[in-house]
Amino acid sequence: MIKRFFDWLKKPLGLIAVGITFLALFSLAAYGISLSQQPPAQPVQFPHRIHIGFGIQCLYCHPGAAKGPSAGIPAEARCWGCHNQIVKTQTSLLLKPLKDSVISGKPLQWVPVAQVPDFVQFNHRAHIAAGQNCENCHGDMSKMTVAENPQIFNMGFCLKCHTKVAGENHDLLVKLTDCGTCHY
């Protein structure tokens, strides 16, 4: 039975079948990988590019980054502070979710883009206090429309910078490369 199947695979029809199977698997894998590389769909196509173009600082909308572990996503009231003075907000179809959210009081369900696993405890404050700029990890937002991740936040990415910053300072190196600094 199995021998007959292998014999059939060597025939032209069998070879075509093998080819089709291989192509299907390959394209499925490529599609899967490309899916994982796309930024997630957001309720509003928020253009970081335009907002930064107006000269708005990162910390204006994400003030938590300077104060605590989480940078935070601004509430609709923060958006509305500027947007209710802009005529286009009332008519734009892209901004309709924001207007609806303000009227109904239901918060927009933003999808987090830059994430670390549950077993990593990240603190924005310490990094900002150490003089790191947002774009060192989050990329140049002035070139992005919907937020996307320029790099994978894995341990190599973190430690590369931690060892570089510590340099010759042994005490700092011990603290910055200690497992317990991030994993608990």
């Binding site: 696993p117 077993f119 011990v174 603290k175 200690d178 497992c179 317990g180 600094t181 994993h183 608990y184």
Partner: peptide, 15 residues
């Protein structure tokens, strides 16, 4: 399970 040099504790690294 490693010893934290910075905090002098026994750590358990779950991952």
């Amino acid at each position: 399970t490693v010893h934290s040099q910075a905090e002098q504790l026994n750590l358990q690294v779950y991952n």
